[in-house]
Amino acid sequence: MNRETAINTVLVAGLAAVPLIASAFDDPFIVTLATRIVIFALAGVGLNLALGYGGLVSFGHAAFFGLGGYAAGILASHALNYEPLATWPFEISGTTQMLVIWPIAMVVSAFAALVIGALSLRTSGVYFIMITLAFAQMIFFFAISWPAYGGEDGLSIYVRNQFPGMNTLDPTSFFLLACAILALALLFSSRLSASRFGLALKGARQNDQRLASVGIGPFRVRLTAFVISGMITGLAGALFADLNRFVSPSMLSWQTSGEIMVFVILGGVGRLFGPVAGAALFIILEHSVGPISEHWQFLLGILLLAVVLFARGGVIGVLAGGARHG
């Protein structure tokens, strides 16, 4: 077992221990906090596919996070108000079933990622960073100025959506549900990065002319990766909406894009468990330093600067050592 595997095992064990720790301390808030970590890690796993494996520095993943959240919020609000979502050409009603909401959230995010990716991937480098940011801002401003679903005030989901055979309002159940999805996403991510497609994607990052010369078009590989990446982040958004029972344009803001990026980079770009480590560190820091000083973001900024300037490779990079593979 190498050191990176050992770190990953510690992270998994840490998450598994959360319900036990929470019941030992009799503090259910720990579970909610851990659920936040898991959901943010899931969003990071999505971004890591594009950013880490594909080298696509997307500064607009909040768009997919927010769209997933709004998909969940809008479907639930229609179901709870007994208003059909559409009456023509046939009647479509809202739903509170997570098993229906998740695929819809993923399809919506995938469609947005397809459009944004198809336009943005015409460019590269700094242009790509700024364009993905600008598209996310476009959706953000649309959400703010469109009054039907709360506009700037956001949209409340009065009752958490349902999952068959489970009481999702119980924090531990919801936590385990989120963990199961994160585990699936990590499994998918590791299988994908080892697959022919994953190798082609890494090839596109390293040298796209060489990839083209062996007969693989880099554009389609990148676009596919961008769409998958957006779908996973969108799913995280739907879960986040259910965690807070609230959706607001702040999920779409550029700060959210920055934070998702921070999770990935703090943990270690292109490392399978990087987003998990990064999200855990970020949230724990926020909640341990936050009460001591209201200016915790100052410390976060200094810490981030230190990681970028002196500890390249993030937490996992520093602890596990060695260049990342791939």
Binding site: V57, F59, I129, M261, V262, F298, G301, L304, L305, V308
Partner: peptide, 16 residues
């Protein structure tokens, strides 16, 4: 550094 490091470091500067 590459653009990713620049984005992250200057994002940190915004917070500071």
């Amino acid at each position: 550094r590459d653009h990713l490091d620049q984005v992250l470091a200057t994002f940190a500067l915004i917070l500071v």
